[in-house]
Design a binder for these strands. Structure first.
Lengths: 214, 214
DNA sequence: TCCGAATGTGGACATCGTACACAAAGGGTG
DNA sequence: CACCCTTTGTGTACGATGTCCACATTCGGA
């Protein structure tokens, strides 16, 4: 039996190859439609064509899987924010550019929340303890997490002279609070189902408030 | 068998009397420690000393029960905000009073989020559709929902001349976004476990930002 | 070549939400 | 007071889920 083609293995599922990532991918699909509570261990293994218990070779828990999916969703958010910045028209005015990059952080965040509510909720579903958004698994293409992207944009404002240096410390929490709050209200709060155009306007107003009040 | 004391009914559980409220109360207890996902139908009926299916005479769904619990938690939030306002020292300065009442809305909101994270998360757990925070079941002692309390405080700012009238429309969403966002970050975001003192400071900074940027 | 570690499978169990059929208590009408 | 219908709880049952345990297979070195 040296030939392998007719010597078919009794089980073709062994050595899936990359089951861990397959499960995360399945989890993302589930989270995409249904949010964190839809990330069901058995459903993920089913989608990966594998027995439920196989998951326990790669994750200690359903919670561990959910955590990994959450990180992946956070990375999606980071990429959306990066894309928003990358789509900015080029400018020679350094101050205008810094300001545009700052605003793009917020609009990208809000756009992701609206376009991918399931992933957004999953990204911020924190199952237990943790200092979530700081891990590198939550980073986007540039290697920055959403929080770091915000920090960089704020630094840009300071460099451009648009934000006094003494106002810089802690500013990320002010900006993040306002934008995240609006996102939460849009995704599953009383502002849910707002027309995308109106939601965009609301986002601009919130960012205006941040710029004034920061 | 005219006497009732020895004529004991075969089942003492019939006609609980107020099972619906007992279940909501049990649900609040569960939500208090464990948030919305801890509101388990069978656990609530158990605590009420009743068979699981009895719940279906008062709620169509586990979701309906959770919704009712959520409304009750929202009412708790409203009462906390009212208490925060009631504890304000009396002032003859009308403008200062209006401003203090406005800030108390925010600090009460944030205090509730920190002191009752389970109930806070439950209050904002929206299971499906809904225009949640507007129902009268979510109101506090004064009959106002959290959202209405905020609106009243903003009206007070306008009357006191602290907020230009043309800035009033939509202002609740700006203020709410900022405060709610901080609350979310404190309750299960990266700011979780912040020392109450630091959390209070962060809250004051956010409210400062709102006052400047609104 | 052989053997241990890694990876999947199968079966089992407690728990959960919920459907269906039944039982008892209460209230109204005669 | 008797009767019946509605309301409210009970009991049993089913499928789904997370997770535990024992077993099987495959892979990668010694």
């Amino acid at each position: 039996m040296t030939a392998a083609e007719n010597n078919k293995p009794k089980r073709d599922t062994y050595r899936h190859g990359d089951l861990r990532n397959a499960l995360i991918e399945a989890g993302l699909e589930l989270a995409h439609q249904g949010g964190p509570e839809a990330v069901v261990l058995r459903a993920a293994t089913r989608q990966a064509g594998v027995a439920p218990n196989a998951a326990y070779r790669h994750f200690t828990d359903r919670n561990a899987l959910l955590h990994a999916v959450s990180q992946a969703a956070m990375a999606h958010l980071a990429r959306t924010m990066e894309a928003e910045q990358a789509a900015l028209p080029p400018t020679t005015d350094a101050a205008a550019a810094a300001r545009a990059r700052f605003r793009a952080v917020g609009t990208g965040y809000l756009r992701f929340a609206q376009e991918e509510p399931g992933l957004f909720r999953t990204a911020f579903h924190v199952p237990g303890d943790m200092t979530h958004a700081a891990a590198d698994t939550a980073a986007g293409a540039t290697g920055k997490t959403p929080f770091e992207l915000l920090g960089a944009a704020l630094d840009g404002l300071v460099e451009a002279g648009l934000l006094p240096e003494d106002r810089r410390p802690g500013a990320e929490f002010l900006a993040w609070s306002a934008v995240h709050g609006l996102a939460a209200l849009l995704v599953d709060g009383p502002l849910r189902g707002l027309h995308p155009t109106q939601a965009h306007d609301a986002g601009q107003h919130v960012i205006d408030m941040i710029e004034r009040g920061i």
